[in-house]
């Protein structure tokens, strides 16, 4: 378990192993402390200069030494005029929303569907083999994939559009 936590922190676990371990940590109340201890150990090892033993006590002592402010806070209250104005604004806002929903409701459905589609930025697909195939073929000559995949690795260079 400890080894696994350490491996997870170093990013050496595969996704499925990491998920299984995180699950285990969630269901094991003692593991929480272990997790924190490992991070603390890691932090101290990486930045020994920043490690202050007993920092909690030091902060508490400083806080106790701070003077307590006894002055009353400022009263906050709404002016009647501002209240009336903001009420009027709310009514207008409501009317605007109602008007907008009417407008949107009368839009043709196809346009609605178009609006809801997520906007994805995608690179253009490769232009046909013309012009590009020389680059792809020249590139392929030195592709390490050909060692594992043999002739099938040429597929990328001759694929149709």
């Amino acid at each position: 378990m400890k080894q696994q936590v350490s491996a997870l922190m170093d990013g050496e676990l595969f996704d499925d192993e990491a998920e299984a371990l995180l699950d285990k940590l969630k269901h094991n109340p003692g593991a929480d402390g272990e997790w924190r201890t490992y991070h603390l150990i890691g932090d101290v090892l990486r930045h020994p200069d920043h490690a202050y033993p007993g920092i909690g006590t030091a902060v508490r002592e400083r806080l106790q030494a701070e003077p307590t402010v006894l002055a009353p806070g400022r009263r906050t209250g709404h002016n009647a005029r501002w209240f009336a104005l903001s009420a009027a604004a709310s009514v207008m806002g409501l009317a605007l929303v109602a008007w907008m929903s009417l407008q949107v409701g009368s839009e043709p459905p196809s346009q609605m569907a178009m609006l809801q589609q997520p906007i994805a930025v995608r690179p253009a697909s490769l232009p046909g083999n013309k012009g590009m195939s020389d680059y792809l073929m020249a590139h392929h000559e030195f592709s390490p994939r050909a060692d594992v995949q043999g002739t099938a690795s040429y597929i990328r260079t001759v694929a149709d559009q």
């Binding site: 690179p123 253009a124 697909s125 490769l126």
Partner: peptide
């Protein structure tokens, strides 16, 4: 000029 792609292949 620009980026074009085909599966894992980028140009």
């Amino acid at each position: 000029p620009g980026l074009s792609s085909r599966g894992a292949m980028q140009v």
